[in-house]
Design a protein around this nucleic acid. Structure first.
Lengths: 304, 304
DNA sequence: TCCTCTCCCCAAGGTTTCCTTATGGACGGC
DNA sequence: GCCGTCCATAAGGAAACCTTGGGGAGAGGA
């Protein structure tokens, strides 16, 4: 079986015309070249070089191999260069999946930093929520999945069908406090903090299905069931509804930051509600340079 | 440094999707595949495979290598096949140099046998005499040089400038008796054998320069200097001149065989004169299958 | 013609690489 | 819950590889 090493040596011998010169070029000793060529000739089943006096000339078979070696070694060098570009962050694609509108500040900051530091890399973004995003991760449709959770349920949790394996790598980004949002003319608009129970009679505007689920849990823990008039995962819509005086809401601080809260006021609620935002990936992918770099940028963006 | 072996393993893993299956395909054990891939990932500087549960999927870098591997391994296989064709005598070119008109029977027989036995091979023929043919051999302009000599001078002998190295391989083909050629009406035309001395007063027709030189030596050893009226290395011309009664000649039996000796008679001369016909090549070339096969055919043609 | 330099081959030794066997942990299917 | 498959790891032996040291032969110069 002919190996690339053989061809490298053969090419060096053919171009220099001498074993010693080839050894110098390859950075090894002359007997090493001698042995490599002997091994290659043995593999080829025919002499490859004619030792006519001092001159080393390839035979017909040698010429065949030298001719092919050019293309083969060029292909190998191209492959190595391309891989080196990926390893050296001069290239690389990171497919990011994020929960909808949950990362309006995080992702742009991280992507901008990534582009600035490693212009050759590309980051693509698709929106999906767990467990869909985790499925995409496992199916190879993305490298990083941004996710959040309110409790310690596994990331692969499927509402209707058990858990996935929990072999994911979770890089904690931030714990996002949830704040109450009330119309600015609401009695509690200027309060420092309101107990969730005091909002028992208010009409509620809920966010995404999972947020809504958690809201119900928290309220029921406080002794009431919230009356949810509207549910939408579009945070500007939530803010608009609250601003119009149609109800109150609890939503992530991050979301409030990124939406102009006209006509509303944010108040702290007790008990403190927070969600954990993490970047998920697979153990092997975490060691891919572009993925690792993107994870670092996400973490930096979260800690800013 | 990426080796072809790595790419073979990677391709097998990528196509089968499993280390174990790749090992079966490659005819080795699963840990061997495991180690090869670890070595390749180390050389690449980035993970190449994502171990997502049971499934083995290439990363972006892995896909790059798999993509390049196709071309590289195809090139390698093509090179191996081409070399195998040369080694297996399904291809190959032998450049033969022969002394002029000296092998009119030998070479055609051998070439015909070569073509019959190995149709893929090609034999080319150029005429030249030593030392020119030996120079061509050393310069790589041919693989086999047919030569003859009357004594033990080295094959690389240069009339005006010493000897070449004598590192040639000489395959003896035949020892060619030289016969006298006289007009058929000559007094000795029916003699069994004539002493060379009895032809001292005849006009001579000589062959090529070296043959002529040797003729003079032999005659002087017999006590006379031949009067050479014509000298040509064209054997039919020699026969024509003798047939026209313009003189006598001594020429190789092989040459007489291949020329219709009209108007002449061949007689044995004493002392017996013979020349040694050999096929010369370089030690390494002697191991090239096509060259070795051609040498065998030449020897067989000589022994027929 | 002799000397010297270079080149290649050969042999021996040590290091590294490679492959195999054996074992354990994890996942998926029945 | 059991079993089969798959991969990782460790340890051992085998093979490949490279280096050092020495020898023979040719080429060029004094």
């Amino acid at each position: 079986m002919i190996e690339a090493r053989h061809l490298r040596v053969l090419r060096a011998v053919a171009t220099t015309g001498s074993f010693s010169a080839a050894a110098r070029e390859l950075g090894c000793t002359q007997p090493a070249v001698s042995q490599q060529m002997k091994a290659l000739e043995s593999a080829a089943g025919t002499p490859l070089l004619v030792r006519a006096g001092r001159e080393m000339r390839p035979t017909q078979a040698g010429e065949v191999l030298v001719r092919h070696a050019a293309g083969i070694l060029a292909g190998l060098a191209a492959a190595e260069e391309e891989v080196a570009a990926l390893a050296g962050l001069r290239a690389g694609r990171v497919r990011l999946v994020s929960f909808p509108s949950g990362s309006s500040t995080l992702v742009p900051t991280a992507v901008a930093a990534m582009r600035a530091d490693h212009p050759g890399t590309r980051v693509s973004l698709v929106e999906a929520e767990p467990p869909r995003s985790v499925d995409m991760l496992r199916a190879g449709d993305c490298e990083i999945a941004l996710a959040f959770r309110y409790d310690a349920t596994p990331w692969g949790y499927h509402p209707a069908g058990g858990w996935g394996r929990d072999d994911l790598v979770a890089r904690p980004l931030l714990t996002d406090r949830l704040v109450g949002l009330v119309p600015q003319e609401h009695p509690f608009a200027d309060a420092d903090e309101v107990g969730i129970g005091t909002l028992a009679e208010e009409p509620w505007i809920a966010g995404c299905p999972r947020c809504r689920g958690h809201l119900v849990e928290v309220c029921e823990a406080a002794g009431f069931t919230p009356r949810i008039d509207f549910a939408t995962d579009d945070y500007p819509a939530v803010v608009g509804l609250v601003g119009a005086g149609l109800g109150v809401a609890v939503l992530p601080e991050l979301a409030v930051e990124s939406v102009r809260p006209k006509g509303t006021r944010a108040v702290r609620v007790s008990p403190a509600v927070q969600r954990e935002v993490v970047a998920l990936t697979l153990p092997d992918l975490a060691r891919v340079p572009a993925v690792a770099a993107m994870l670092d940028r996400l973490e930096a963006a979260a800690h800013r």
